[in-house]
Design a protein around this nucleic acid. Structure first.
Lengths: 354, 354
DNA sequence: CTGAAAGCGCTTACAG
DNA sequence: CTGAAAGCGCTTACAG
């Protein structure tokens, strides 16, 4: 009953048939290329809408020779902290998946203790003019001129792990730092009594540059204030050379405060505090950050009680995917994607996938 | 310098050139189809290995007209609990993604309070002979004969949310129930003193059938035993008709135990206990399961202190993906994939993505 | 401004 | 047991 002429073609071919044009012309309007009269363009767009046409992405990819070039810039994983191994893993996962879709990824790294290494890599990136950039903007002031140039070159960039608000990034993927500190305080409130004293510790060579840590502290303090808890918080900034120097400083503080009930370390360096507590044998609750092997070991031994984690692997993965979705699929992407605030203990860490 | 003959072709074409056969023959050995002499088959396999040939999945999909038919069988989300809306959401996500890859998904449901509805749906599935099945095997005894038939028909099946060990499922995706109870006890140990009394509550019409709940209880008790904590645990089984009857039962228990410090509810029905606590105004810590809107409300009000969640959306998503990977990609899949045991509080629930 | 044709890397009848 | 050819739904020169 259905003769050949009535047979419904699919995709672009059907659009072409209805519009009485060639598929090349349909392709032109699909990709908003020039060289189509306004009249036929409107006609075709109408048909596309009528049909609710969805392009076949596999066919598109197969036919297209186009490659999308992405560059990632994150700290290198160091002796002191293997944190950045996780986002890298996520980046590599995304890289593997995107290979089929014509996405090429170049990964470059900087040293968190060396501002110059950051500058060097940003120059490299600008020279290479990729289609998109993923970066961890650790050095705020150094990042800004780089980002300005990206904007000039119309290169979209996404931030992971820490944000620079107001920089017109395609998106930020990482923790809500304030809320992360707030949650830590929430945990603390279950663990100590109103009259106990606790210690908050920042450990970083570049504390002043690390807006990151201070933001967590703000959230932490805000919790107690908002809930009218008058727990006494002692604070210590440690600019360590090594674990040894951290242990010495912590030791000094503890010997002056015999009533300390709990220590909250605002980043992944919590293991160096744990090292001291273990040796000294003092029974103090300890909360810190990040699923690193050294931290997990202390968690397992009961020296660290809680670790807060924010899916570092997923940050890398999603960061790259966001660029892909924007550049290739032309999807819109959320401007902020906050990671969950995961609470890890001795009893659930082995199930944690991040 | 490079003449046409030396140009390296890619993929199947290059293999064919080297083996001096047609691409059709290469395709035959790639798919282990019959009709190729042992000699040429070996020659071709050698070349495939040499080249470390990776098929282009997009081209494969585009050319193939094959469709993979999957059926999912899970409880329908009910008035009493919206839990199953989450796995369904995950299933639908996977369905959307897999559409492009020629996967067709049919979703059927049963009533958790009606064994017959389960039986009826399994018959439907067997009649339809899909390529794979995803199911929540709530009714253990009823599931077994069905699974036997699946095995006879060589239809692979995957379990989500609860496992039936020894049934040769392709895989299980869900919580480790024992460890989930164990973690709950771990939390409790931070919240109460050695001399406090706590209450453990199962709420289910089909408690005896629900191996599920008992397994959590085992883990919960094991924690205290292994850690030599002599906290007194009162236990209550409630077979409710509605929230009202739960509240009455809880009320009776509480009035007989003035020293109760904490209640642990072994499933998502924790909100009905919360309802009572809120009305009565008694200050008792409350721990339960699952990210349901009714639970989150009580969490937010401070009536529920902790919810344990195990990524129900992801369970549905991964379940379907496991079938796809097995059937289409011929990848191997892990026989057990335990979900993380997430701890949700008032301060981190808004970041929870599952 | 528009179209005919080749081609992306596979699979699928069909013929021999 | 093996191969030539058409086709999957697109993109990309190229010609007019």
């Amino acid at each position: 009953m259905v003769n050949k002429k009535d047979t419904v073609l699919s995709g672009i071919r059907e659009i072409a048939r209805r519009a009485k044009v060639s598929i090349a012309t349909v392709d032109r309007v699909l990709h908003k290329r020039t060289g189509v009269s306004a009249k036929t363009k409107d006609r075709i767009n109408k048909i596309i809408a009528d049909l609710d046409y969805q392009p076949n992405l596999m066919a598109r990819r197969l036919a297209s020779r186009k490659v999308t070039r992405l560059i990632t810039l994150i700290p290198k994983s160091s002796e002191e902290s293997s944190f950045w191994a996780a986002p890298l893993k996520g980046i590599e996962q995304a890289e593997t998946e995107l290979l089929q879709f014509g996405v090429n990824v170049v990964k470059v790294f900087f040293d968190q203790d060396d501002i110059e290494s950051f500058n060097k890599q940003t120059k490299y990136i600008l020279k290479n003019k990729p289609d998109g950039v993923l970066l961890a903007p650790s050095f705020l002031e150094q990042a800004k001129p780089f980002l300005r140039q990206c904007k000039n070159l119309k290169i979209p960039f996404v931030f992971i792990n820490s944000d620079i608000p107001g920089e017109e990034s395609l998106c930020y993927i990482g923790p809500n730092l304030y809320k992360s500190g707030y949650l830590a305080a929430n945990l603390v409130s279950y663990l100590v009594n109103k009259t106990d004293e606790i210690l908050l510790v920042h450990i970083s060579k570049e504390i002043d540059n690390h807006y990151h840590l201070l933001r967590k502290e703000e959230g932490f303090r805000a919790y107690f204030k908002e809930n009218h808890l008058s727990i006494k918080i002692i604070k210590s900034d440690i600019r360590p050379k090594d674990n040894h120097s951290v242990e010495r400083e912590i030791g000094a503080i503890l010997s002056g405060n015999k009533n300390l009930k709990l220590i909250f370390v605002t980043n992944s360096r919590v293991s160096s505090v744990a090292g001291y507590l273990k040796k000294s044998g003092r029974d103090i609750l300890l909360i810190g950050y990040d699923y690193l092997s050294e931290n997990i070991e202390f968690l397992n031994e009961g020296v660290i009680n809680f670790l807060i984690c924010q899916k570092p692997v997923e940050q890398g993965y999603r960061g790259l995917m966001a660029l892909y979705r924007h550049l290739v699929l032309k999807d819109s992407v959320e401007q902020q994607y906050f990671m969950p605030i995961d609470i890890i203990t001795k009893e659930n860490y082995s199930f944690y996938r991040n």
